[in-house]
Structures are given as C-alpha cells and as structure tokens.
Design a protein around this nucleic acid. Structure first.
Lengths: 409, 409
DNA sequence: CAGAGTTTTTTTGGATATCAAATTAAATCG
DNA sequence: CGATTTAATTTGATATCCAAAAAAACTCTG
C-alpha cells in the first residue's frame, strides 16, 4: 500500500524543471535575499557561477521587477578604488504578501512587502473553537480584508498568503489531518481558501513556520541544519535539514509533543500514554496541581513554585526533567548543530532553565566533537505570523521565477 | 566553535562538480545499476532525458568499460515488433570490490565484482578486542589477502573496500570517534588503512551499511525513505532519507541504542541512565536474570521464557515494551514509510513479536494516512559485509565517473 | 586635471550539452 | 519482399555558460 515511489516530498522540488537556467535563477535570487544587498561580483563568488552569468540572470530578474539596483550598503567594506559596485536587492514592491496564524483564541496576521518589511498587522479574536472549515475560511477572509485595509491596499493585491495552524498539517498538499482549530478531521483547507480568494495559500504546521522564521530572520540564519522547539499550548518542533524543512514521509513532520517519555505513562489528550505533552503541557501541570487543591492558572502555580512552595516546585521540576529527556532524544536522533528553544509564553520558561539545558548536554551521546548549541529565543505573538509570511515569500518567489522561465520560452 | 558553514555532509555531494554532464552520467549509471538490465529507451524514460543523451552517455560509459551491452532479459515484457532493444548492464569485471565488517570476535569479508556478484568470502577470528589501530590494520590486510587468494585475485586488483564497524563512525571523514573494536578513541583509521594498502577505504557505521544493503538488495529497494534497526550486541539504526543515508550534523548518525526510554533509568554501558540499550541489550537482560540466580547465556534465558518461566518471561516482556517505545519515537520523529527490523540473532526475536509491533503501530501519531510498514528481515552473517561491499561499489562508481569527466576534458 | 591604475560590469566568441526531428537499423507481419 | 514497427543514432538548432576582452566608472598621483 505504499505511496508512489516518486512522490513529491518537498514543495521546493515539487516540479521537475524543464528550464536549465531555473536553478541559477533560484540560486542567485536566494543569494540576494539572504544578503539583503549584494553586488553582482559577490553573487558570482557565493553562487559559484561566472560574473557573466550573474549579469545575464540579474538582467532577467530586473526586467521581471523582482529585484532592483541600489547604492551599496554603507557599512559594508567598500573598496576604495575601481568601478564602484552596484548592489542588488529584492524589490519590496514586487509582491504583497501576508502571513497569518490561527491560534486557539485569535487569528494573527501580518502584511509584508516582498522584502519582508512589515506594512501592517491585525488580530481577530475567535469566539469559539474548534470551527468548521467554512467559518475558518470566512474568518481568514475577514482578517485579510481588515489587514489590507489598514495598509490601504486591496485584498486582490495579495500575491500569496502563508498560513500556520497547530496540528497535523500536510504542507505539500495544503491539507489538514487534524487541528484544534477545526471541528473535523481531514480537511482540504487549502482548496477551500483558494476557492474563496484569488491568491495562493501556503499552509504549514505552526512550528515549521517558526523554523522558517528562525532560518530567515532569527538565530538559524547561519545554520544549514537546526531544530526549533516551540512551546505554546502544546509542544511543537520544526526540523531544518540541509536548509530545507524536513516533513517526513506523510508530509506532516515530527510531533515532538507526542514523543513517548514514559512507558505506560500519564494519559495524554491524544488518547495515548506517556507522551511528553502529558508531562509538560499546561493542562498536565494543572492536573497535577489540582490533586493538591490548587486552583488558578499556570502563572499562579509558577508563582507559588518561585516562592518556594515545594509541591509546586516538584511539579515543574519533573516537567523540566521530562522535557530534557525528550530533547535529548531529538538531539540523539537528528544530531543537529543547533537547537533553538523558541516560545512566547514566559510562564513556561522553567523549561529553559540552565540546569535543564546542562542536563541535556550531559545526556547526549558524547563524542569529541562540539556539542549541539542550545539557544533560547523568546519572541512575541507576531513572530508566528512573520514565519508564515516568510514561508509565503519563499513560495511566491519560487513560483514567480518558475513562471518567468516558462514565459521566456 | 561551529564547523564551517558549507561543510560537507554527504560523500555523494562532496565535490562541487565542474562538469555539466556529470549529473547525467551518475543518473544514467544509477538507473542501469538499479534496473540490472535496461534498454536505452527505458533509461530515457526513467531519467527524464532524451534518447539522444542516453546514447551519448551510454557510449561514454561503454568506452570506459563501466557497462556492457547484453541481450534483453528474457522475463521482461519484450515488445514483439520493431528493432529489438539492446540492454545495458554494469560490467562486473570493471572493478574488484571488497566489503568487510569488524565485529567483536571476528572479521567477515566478502569479495564481489562491480555488479555485486559474490566471488569469495572469508572470516578471520579475532582473539582479543579491543585492539590498537595498527593491529586492526594488519588484520584487515590479512583478511583481504586471504580473501583475494580464495578467488585467485591479487590484493592490488582491489578498487575499493567498504568497511563497517560498530560504534561512532564519521563516514564523511573515515574517522572513528569510538568503537568497541579499537582500544583508543578518535582514530584516523581510514588514513591508517590507506597508508598500508593501495586502494581507497570507505568506512561507515555497521548499521548504516545494513541500510545500504537493504536499499540495494533488500526490502528497501523500492523505498526512497526508510529506517533500518539492527539488533546485535547493541541496537543500531540506519536512516535513509531521499535515497541517501542520513548522518546528522557530526557525521556519525543517530544512536538508537542510546535513546532515552526511562527518566533516571537503568545504568547503561555508556555511563548514562535510561538508554534503550540498558533495557534490551543482552548484558541488560542477563543482569536482570542474575538477580534471581540465573546462570547461563541469553539463549538459555530465552528458552526458559518459552517454557513458561514467569520471571524470565517478564524480563523479555519489559524489554519488548521498551523496544516498542523507542521504535515509536523513531517513527514519530522521522515519519518513515517503512521500518525494517534487521538482525541475525535469532535469540532476540522476542523484540519482533507480533504484539510488540502492533503496540508500535498503535502508539504512533495517528492520521488518516497509511501507517509506516514494519518489516522484519533476518539474515546471515555475511549481509553486513555485503552492505559494506554495496557501499564501496557506490563510492567507487561515483569516483570513477567523476574521474572520467575530468579525463575527458 | 590628465592619464594610470583598479575594480566592477558587460559584451563577445567559442565550447558544449541537450533536445527535437530526421535518419538509420533491425526486427516482425502479412 | 515490402510495409510496419520500434530502437538507436545522427543531425541541426538552440541555449547555457564561461573565459577573455572590452567597457565603464571610479580613485590616485604627479
């Protein structure tokens, strides 16, 4: 019953290109995006192609309006003599992009230009979740309309929208196996959205989008392989291998929260036992505290622990140790050079405590090679949406350049 | 202290090619190897290139002596009319290859031609392990000499040798961080071997070589992504993603045996607690049995369990459940389409029991997509060496074709 | 300030790769 | 034996890519 052998695993490689120059176009465009501003001659060095080819491709990209020429960046070491360099950069006006995340209680959206510069943001509260797909579609449209209005742009101007959701999302098919936001399983949500609005949607699991944001703007900028762990309601993970997001065989990537950390362990929301989430998720912590009569939310519980309450402390303590164990397994499996712990909930920073991370480093398989770096990156609500926007920018770039090739022919 | 950004991760992509045709050469050669015998026109279809290009490349490969023309395979659906197809196949005589595995008590080696046909095999007992690198080198030479003698070939005829070892091996650098066969850590064993013998060595972790064997000859032939779990003294794992062996950031791949399955759990040989190996390794099982006065080896203990001895049974039972838990984590992390449980020790087949595997399937994150297939593949001693040979064939092919390109220019 | 020097970018010319179409080759069928 | 069919090769055209040359656009120096 296996899937077809040549099945498509990554969006990036989803179409067998006919144009022999497309690879160079993508590579040169990507070099410009990554550098911000860069002269042709430096592109030639980075992309390992001749200056002549860079000139040719750059001319195409300029004609297509995807990039523009600018004065070289002031702070780059300008050569004193000779013909001055002319820098290239992505043309912000080329496309209008939105990124959004559907969370439990609200939808956050951000409007960016093609360079990634923020033009507006908007948040729409959700009164009740989960919802049917049709209502999600309506809410998305509503959010995007308001978002565009804020920046004085029309909805129709959008060239693409990145959309992050919690749950099991197959990004290659814009398909949702399951999400806490949806009241049914196995939804062709991408098709529903694209039927309603005249631009492409790029769906992904929210943790993958954080990984994408870290890769483009954050701590993963200089790494080709890293892992992002996100902590929110649940625990999520995004894996970047060889500069690409790893999605596994079924397209929905790894589920860190449902890693097993205890044989026949605590009951998890997913119906199985011993999942990490059943030890570190907020509901899991409160469940334990409730046994001893604690009422109130996680913040209150955490405050009690900080005040020295032994019971509260032991709850967080165990969660921290379980988290460390899960993290050790991730590292042992993937052996990444870098692990980024990324979250917005300050309430859960007990998981990031120094001793937890030291425990992790000590428990990884030891060799005489540098241990994986573990970095903690806290950020705000909008970063999720920003990751979605980044994903959409990448997807639209790829598609545009691909189309460009076809039009040229 | 990170490694350089553009560091080489995979042998296959280790050199930035200058020759624009090299990609086609490799692809067409690989298509021939995979098919066994195949006509040019079918290569064109598979490799997505025009028949003209296939003709050109095939002529090159024929001239270089890497392939040869043969009558089409009888059992392939021969077209009745028209010009008959001429099949191409790898020329077995092109190169002489050896594969070998260094185990605890013996070295197994196999001599194959370039097609993978076995020409001879040889086993050399090791009197004591671990050994210094110099002695290992001497034993390898001794084994290879005897092996070649058996087939009436000279040692110097060898074009490459694949070598599998247990432990932490960096295949990209032919470097051993640690191995039970070596009496010291961090050994440049590849350099030592190549200084002693006039052909290249291709080192790898033994589990990766089993994965390679499964990919080329075994149950992984039709899968682009799968995982192999090997059970011998320890527990090993080989991961194939996108047709390539995944080795992680430090080049030595994942260590399934040291996955943590229990917080603050049983003491492992590696000095840490809660490793899977500390629950399913033979020494772990015997350790438990010893508490109750069991003397004798694992086979005896297993026999007792089969006879209904409750104590013995409970030992294997727990080991099976721990193994299942580790396997669930592997699957949750990598989401492979196929998992191959591969081993030679019948004594450990309790791990493969139906109920263990059913437990695994039930504990994986559930989506409405086919569950990963789990296959059990038992094989003999020589398969390890065969995997090593397969790895060497691949490496020598790549290198030869690359050299061909340079000579042409 | 003119020309020499330097560096970047573009243009030019040539070598190749690849493909579509045409041709040749080698068989079967009637 | 000619017609048909299919495979493989050759031919001719196109396009990529690069090295080298040329042009462009500066600075420096006497």
């Amino acid at each position: 019953m296996g899937m077809p052998k040549d099945r498509i695993t990554h969006f990036e490689t989803s179409v067998q290109s006919q144009d022999p120059r497309e690879g160079n176009r993508q590579q040169i465009f990507e070099a410009i995006r990554q550098a911000g501003r860069i002269a042709r001659i430096d592109i030639a060095k980075i992309a390992q192609v001749s200056p002549a080819t860079v000139t040719a491709v750059a001319t195409e990209l300029l004609t297509a309006g995807l990039i523009e020429e600018v004065e070289p960046d002031g702070d780059t070491e300008q050569v004193r003599r000779g013909r001055p360099r002319v820098s290239l950069k992505i043309r912000g006006d080329a496309h209008l992009i939105a990124g959004m995340k559907i969370a439990d209680r609200h939808i956050t959206a951000i409007l960016v230009d093609f360079e990634g510069t923020t033009l507006a943001d908007h948040t729409l509260p959700i009164v009740s979740a989960p919802l049917p797909a049709a209502e999600i579609t309506a809410l998305v449209r509503q959010t995007l309309t308001a978002l565009c209005a804020k920046a004085g742009r029309a909805l129709e101007e959008l060239a693409g929208v990145g959309l992050g959701m919690a749950g099991l999302v197959d990004a290659t098919r814009n398909f949702v196996y399951w999400s806490p936001s949806l009241d049914q399983r196995n939804v062709e949500i991408g098709a529903a959205l694209e039927a309603d609005m005249p631009f492409p949607f790029f769906l992904d699991n929210d943790a993958n989008l954080v990984a994408k944001a870290e890769q483009l703007f954050g701590k993963g900028r200089d790494a080709s392989d890293f892992i992002v762990i996100t902590i929110e309601q649940g625990v999520g993970m995004g894996i970047v291998i060889d500069n690409r997001i790893y999605r596994g065989g079924r397209g929905c990537g790894a589920e860190f929260g449902h890693t097993k950390v205890q044989l026949d362990g605590a009951m998890c929301r997913c119906g199985q036992r011993g999942c990490l989430e059943a030890y570190v998720g907020d509901y899991a912590l409160l469940r334990e505290a409730a046994v001893h009569g604690h009422k109130g939310d996680l913040a209150a519980l955490y405050a009690r622990a900080k005040d020295g309450d032994k019971l509260a402390k032991s709850i967080f303590d165990r969660a921290g140790r379980m988290f460390a164990m899960g993290l050790v397994n991730v590292i042992n499996f993937f052996d990444p050079g870098l692990v980024i712990l990324s979250g917005e909930q300050m309430a859960l920073d007990f998981l990031y405590e120094k001793e937890v991370l030291e425990k992790v480093q000590a428990s990884v398989v030891q060799v005489d090679a540098p241990l994986p770096e573990i970095q903690v990156h806290k950020w705000g609500d909008l970063m999720w949406a920003k990751g979605a926007a980044a994903y959409a920018i990448e997807a639209v770039s790829t598609q545009t350049i691909r189309k460009m090739a076809r039009n040229a022919a």
